[in-house]
Computed example of a mutant assay.
Amino acid sequence: MAKLEIVSPVTGSPRDVWASLRCAAEDAARDEPQLASQLNSVILSHDDLSGALSFQIARKLGDSELGAMTVREVALAAMQADPSIVRSAEADLLAVEERDPAIRSMLQPFLYFKGYQALQSWRVAHWLWEQGRDTLAFHFQSRISELFQVDIHPAAKIGSGVFVDHGTGIVIGETAVVGDEVSMLHAVTLGGTGAERGDRHPKIGRGVLLGAGAKVLGNIQIGDYAKVASGSVVLKPVPSGCTVAGVPARLVNCPTEAAPARTMDHTLADVVYDYVI
C-alpha cells in the first residue's frame, strides 16, 4: 500500500504519520532497550502503517478461537480493500496527538491506549459488516468489548479524526452515527430508549465533545460543534454549537466555543440560560 500523507489539524501542513510513528519507535527502542524487541516486531519491522496496525490488532484480538495470524490476514484484507481505514487511523492518531496532553508521541496511543486500539479494531469489524460477514464482525465486537471495555456495534458509522479518551465503558449502538473530529471520554453511551427496532440511536455531528459519562439516547441529532457536559442525559436534539448539561439535559450556553472537541474544554459558561431542550 502506498504511503499516505494527511494534513495536521494543528499546522495545516501535510504530515507523514507513519514516518513520525517510526521515529518515535526508534527513539524509544534506543532509550528503553528492554522494549526494543517489542517495538521492532510491532512497528519497525513493517513497511507501512497498514502492516504495523494489522499486526497490532492481531496481537491484541487473537486468541485460541481465532488465532493472531488469521486476525492479521483479515485486518490486512480490510485495509487493502478500503484504504480509508488507514487514512482514518492516521487522522485518529493526529487527533490524539493534538488533544491529549498526557502523551509524548504517537507511540503511546498506538501501543498502549485502548481507546485508539479499540476504534481501529472496530474499523475492521465495520468493514466485515459491510461485506455481509456479520458473524465474524460480531466476533470482533465481542473481543473488542472483552479486551478494551469498548462496545461498538459493527454496523455503527464513525468518521475520522475521532478521539476516544480512556475508552472504558464506551457503548455505541447499531444505528448510531458519529461524525468527523468528535471527542468522547469514558462511559459515554450512544444508546436507544427502549426495545424498538429500526433507526433508534443518536446522530452525533462533526466536532462534538461528549464529556465523561454522557448518555445520549434515542434517534436524535446532536448538532455540529455542540458540547455535552459530563454526566448529562440527553433525550432531545441539541442545536449546532450549543452546550447542554444536566439530567435531563438543558441548554446552558448557546452558542458555545467554535471547536470544543479540539480544545477539550469541559467547563461551562458563567451565564447559564437553563431552559429545557
Rank of each mutant, 00 (worst) to 15 (best):
M1T: 13
K3N: 13
S8D: 15
P14F: 06
D16R: 14
W18N: 03
S20G: 15
S20A: 15
L21D: 09
A24R: 00
A25S: 10
E26H: 09
A29R: 07
L35I: 11
V42S: 08
I43G: 00
L44D: 11
D47S: 14
L53W: 02
L53E: 01
K60P: 00
G62V: 04
E65Q: 15
T70H: 12
T70Y: 10
E73M: 12
A75L: 10
A77M: 08
I85N: 00
R87L: 09
A91N: 05
A95M: 08
A95I: 05
E97W: 12
E98R: 15
R104W: 10
S105G: 07
Q108S: 13
P109Y: 03
K114Y: 09
Y116R: 03
Y116N: 02
A118D: 07
R123D: 06
R123M: 11
H126A: 11
L128T: 04
Q131S: 06
R133S: 12
D134P: 00
T135C: 10
I144Q: 02
E146Q: 15
L147T: 12
F148P: 00
V150C: 12
I158R: 01
V162A: 07
F163P: 00
V164S: 01
D165L: 03
H166M: 07
T168F: 12
I170S: 01
E174C: 04
E174P: 02
T175C: 08
T175G: 06
A176W: 00
V177M: 10
D180H: 15
H186I: 04
A187R: 06
G191C: 09
G191E: 05
G191P: 04
R200T: 11
P202T: 03
G207H: 07
L209T: 00
G211A: 09
G213C: 09
G213K: 05
A214S: 13
L217N: 03
Y225W: 14
K227Q: 06
V228Q: 01
A229N: 03
A245D: 04
V247Q: 08
P248A: 06
L251K: 03
P255L: 09
T256M: 03
R262H: 13
R262Y: 12
T263N: 09
V276R: 14
